[in-house]
């Protein structure tokens, strides 16, 4: 204990993490801050602009529309994936030889890279050649996600549900497995039915894992880029242009670095704010 304070070498163990965080988060973020308050014409020539870009982004209808689409998309997939994930987790066996089979099947979609998922669904849903597109059209329903906004939305949502519901399932399943048997036994003795068991035992006990599931799915879907970009490219028109896609268009398509940087920061603050509000609300009663 005597030489505890002299052991400064311990800092060396923290250094790799500090460097990593600095290079992959802090320094890039600072360059974004730098761009967001200045105008540049290249050659490292900068002009001070203050909050002009922020005002411009916040007042732009294009940003409002993308933000609205983003909330609509995230809201839709959360409304589907969370209940569906819980429902699937409830039907999965708790023990026996089928447990590993179910777990592996559930984990499979999570292992596929984003752009591959986008490409898969693109081919799968093409109206002329894709299996899904062909079958739907064969049933007499006019379906073409490359031209119809509704079809494009449905396909994008379906793709996300296919890709990410498993995550909710696995989290909910882990939460269900952690409930001690005594709770189910007590409920049996108290004469509780299936719904009451779900409402008063399983759901309250799942609260923590579901909070994590909602947060993860919120953040991921709110920042979604690759899958819709590969699937629809943001179209038809701008109907599936979510925030990230729009941001890339502004930054790399139009090379408006100032507005793009301001948009990034606003985007980041929205994610942070929503997560914080949600987490605070969910954990408000935990201390009791």
């Amino acid at each position: 204990m005597a030489n505890k304070t002299e052991n400064q070498k311990a800092w060396l163990f923290v250094l790799p993490v500090v460097l990593l965080v600095a290079f992959n988060a802090l320094i890039p973020l600072m360059t974004v801050v730098n761009y967001s308050v200045q105008e540049t014409f290249g050659d490292n020539v900068f002009f001070w602009e203050g909050v002009k870009w922020f005002e411009q982004v916040l007042n732009s209808e294009r940003f409002h529309a993308a933000l609205l689409r983003q909330f609509a998309f995230t809201g839709t997939i959360l409304a589907i994936e969370i209940p569906l994930g819980i429902a699937i987790a409830l039907t999965m066996p708790r023990k026996g030889p089928w447990v590993p089979v179910c777990l592996v099947l559930m984990a499979l979609p999570l292992l596929i890279p984003w752009n591959v998922v986008g490409a898969m669904w693109n081919i799968f849903a093409l109206p002329e050649t894709g299996l899904l597109g062909k079958v739907i059209n064969g049933m007499g329903i006019d379906y073409n996600f490359t031209q119809q906004p509704v079809a494009a939305w449905l396909t994008t949502v379906l793709m996300d549900v296919w890709h990410w519901t498993s995550l909710v399932v696995l989290l909910a399943y882990a939460g269900l497995c952690a409930i001690p048997d005594a709770y189910y036994q007590a409920a049996k003795i108290d004469g509780a039915g299936g719904w009451a068991v779900f409402r008063y035992i399983q759901l309250p006990k799942l609260k923590r894992v579901l909070t994590i599931a909602v947060l993860l799915r919120f953040m991921d879907s709110f920042m979604i880029y690759t899958e819709p970009f590969v699937l629809t490219g943001g179209g038809p028109g701008n109907t599936t242009t979510f925030l990230s896609i729009d941001l890339v268009k502004v930054a790399l398509g139009q090379f408006d670095l100032g507005p793009a940087a301001a948009m990034s920061l606003i985007y980041f603050l929205i994610v942070l704010l929503v997560c914080w509000v949600f987490y605070t609300l969910m954990m408000r009663n935990e201390e009791a």
Partner: peptide, 18 residues
Amino acid sequence: PDQRNIAQVFQFPVVYDT
């Protein structure tokens, strides 16, 4: 169990949290 009219108190407290 629910038709036997019995009550059981478990080793670890079981209450309906919410």
